[in-house]
Design a protein around this nucleic acid. Structure first.
Lengths: 214, 214
DNA sequence: CGTGGTGATCTACATTGTATAGATCTACAG
DNA sequence: CTGTAGATCTATACAATGTAGATCACCACG
């Protein structure tokens, strides 16, 4: 059943890829499917259902990650997510917009659980570290996709020009570094290394949780 | 000038807080200000301008962070951001939705730069670690605000029920841990500890101002 | 031949953002 | 006081959107 549903969701993703998320209207998606707008409703519920479905379909495109050490699996997953975000930037921005509990999302969470367990992280730290890891990976992907890192739209010099130099001592101190252009692939890899190092921190403290104060 | 603009943006934030971001319509905001919808346009440009303005106003409410060690300043900033996200969950979800380069946002970035520099992070690593830190903090705040962590809406048991148990070995292994309810404040503090530990990894103990060549 | 029932369609409507044009207020020069 | 320029708000209108409600086309099975 519901090969039609996937057809609809793929059409919606295509519209988002080509003309941006704002162009994803019931009418536009319907026209792409070759059908009347009202015909979508039995399959996706309503507009929000359509967006949720798009997100689910997106996560469903993550390849299954298996084999190899846990670091490798985590890295593969993270890179796949980032690639997906690059392919579907519009849909990616939905990731932080609504709570998604699709089966595919749960499967991804589970694979991160497994990686952390295999790394030797004590069970009571695994859920937290999963949220930390996924938040960072998704946040990075969305930031790139949504332009939050401001890669193309505005160069650092212009950004600095927005405020008097005296108010931005950090930017001033880092002037030369900030003027270099960023190798985003390398940055992502470096972040992954930091992440795995962070995880490895927990591999020796079997069973005992660190004490937090707040 | 433009005390009116701030009045409009505050009205928009109030509408978002009370009835959700979707309820932020030109008409609703205008009515709250006591004015006609079209009267907003000279002040905010258009709807997107209104949303950007809301985000700017939000970040502008971050208290200035000064004094103390860099860890303390980072922690204060992160907690303030999280508190703000709790107060304005609707507007918070805008953080990853559009590229914001408001003066207030740049000021926040600068204060993180300063903290990292003071921590002794080499200059060529500072921008990357700033993005890592801010992505994690904002991502966490938005995840809580948008319900991505699924705290209230669906308990872990129900989530696990979505797929056959055999397909979720990680969830199965962590069953008891997952059934406990999460102390989000403590989790956030633990993440901050992990973050500062990660930053300390890059600390230069020789303490001399490095000279960069490239 | 019906006879369901599963989809798609057609029409209609309230709500949204906003273009356009006109009205009203403020401040000051004569 | 009078008039005038500029800024600000209002009134009206319109196209686009999501979606309710009723109707209709098909198609397997008795």
């Amino acid at each position: 059943m519901s090969g039609r549903r996937q057809e609809i969701l793929d059409a919606a993703l295509a519209v988002a890829d080509e003309h941006g998320l704002a162009a994803v209207t019931m009418r536009a998606v319907a026209e792409r499917v070759g059908v009347t707008p009202m015909a979508l409703y039995p399959h996706v519920g309503d507009k929000d259902g359509l967006l949720d479905g798009m997100l689910g379909r997106l996560l469903g495109q993550l390849p299954p990650i298996e084999g190899g050490e846990w670091q490798e699996r985590l890295g593969t997953l993270a890179r796949a997510m980032r690639t997906l975000a690059k392919q579907h930037p519009g849909a990616t921005s939905l990731l932080f917009a609504r709570p998604t509990v699709s089966p595919d999302a749960v499967r991804v969470v589970d694979s991160i659980y497994l990686a952390l367990l295999e790394a030797g992280v004590p069970a009571d730290q695994v859920p937290r570290l999963e949220r930390l890891v996924s938040t960072l990976i998704l946040g990075y992907a969305v930031s790139e996709a949504s332009g939050r890192f401001g890669s193309g739209t505005q160069n650092p010099r212009a950004r600095r020009g927005q405020l008097p130099t005296g108010d931005l001592p950090g930017h001033h101190e880092l002037a030369e570094t900030l003027d270099r252009e960023v190798d985003w692939d390398a940055e992502f890899e470096a972040d992954l290394v930091d992440l795995t190092d962070l995880i490895r921190t927990y591999t020796r403290r079997q069973g005992s949780a660190p004490t937090y104060s707040h």
